[in-house]
């Protein structure tokens, strides 16, 4: 465990905590995309199937359970909680997220580290995670007056991705046989999506105008 990996996991954890804080204390999920949250719930469910087959460390097991539990409970709150669900921007959150799943599944069947059920599901989860933020970015673009918690949530997620890239570079140079092309390529695609978004986000913040992404 290197410092980049730990910092990456912690920013990921904080991003989830910020979201849960917003939902629990303010009882609001305004500006949060249910489509993205559903994709994350699927991402963690399909990636952590090895929870039952492989023990890595107590840290690893606990973090997996936290990400599984939090992503599923966020979806539950947004869909079913009688107060929280009323703040959901349903009409703005129109991204057809299920259309992302089929190409990711096909890609996972074609490109995987090993053609087994767990490995295909693992590759699928990485491809899906790379694009899972898209509905959230589209919703942010449409929403006026992004509140602080939503902005911090996306900022923390972006930091988590960037730190993971640093972690891979560090591991590549310090560990023997540490080569994971699928993780790297899908991770870099994901990080670029955030970088592109943040570029426009900071531009609009600097110029103090409403965020407007190019078509």
């Amino acid at each position: 465990m290197n410092i980049f990996r730990l910092a990456g996991d912690m920013t990921h954890l904080f991003s989830v905590l910020v979201l849960l804080l917003k939902i629990h204390t303010i009882k609001s999920c305004a500006g949060i995309s249910l489509k993205t949250q559903e994709l994350y719930a699927i991402v963690f469910t399909t990636r952590y199937l090895d929870l039952f087959t492989t023990y890595i460390s107590l840290y690893n097991t606990i973090m997996k359970l936290i990400f599984l539990g939090s992503s599923i409970s966020i979806v539950w709150y947004m869909r079913h909680h009688k107060v929280v669900r009323r703040s959901y921007d349903k009409d703005q959150d129109t991204f057809r997220h299920y259309l992302l799943m089929l190409p990711c599944l096909l890609l996972a069947l074609l490109i995987n580290e090993k053609f087994t059920f767990l490995e295909v599901m693992w590759a699928f989860s990485l491809y899906l995670e790379a694009v899972a933020i898209l509905p959230q970015l589209v919703l942010l673009q449409r929403t006026r007056n992004i509140d602080n918690l939503t902005g911090q949530y996306v900022l923390l997620l972006g930091a988590y991705r960037a730190l993971y890239v640093l972690n891979w570079i560090y591991r590549y140079f310090t560990e023997e046989n540490y080569v994971h092309w699928i993780t790297w390529v899908s991770g870099i695609v994901q990080t670029l999506l955030y970088a592109d978004f943040f570029y426009y986000y900071f531009q609009s913040w600097k110029n103090n105008v409403k965020l407007q992404l190019p078509a």
């Binding site: 990996r5 890595i56 690893n60 990400f67 580290e113 693992w122 993971y164 972690n167 046989n177």
Partner: peptide, 10 residues
């Protein structure tokens, strides 16, 4: 651990 069947990242 066997190569390619062991993922220790989250």
């Amino acid at each position: 651990p066997p190569e390619g069947s062991f993922h220790d990242e989250l």
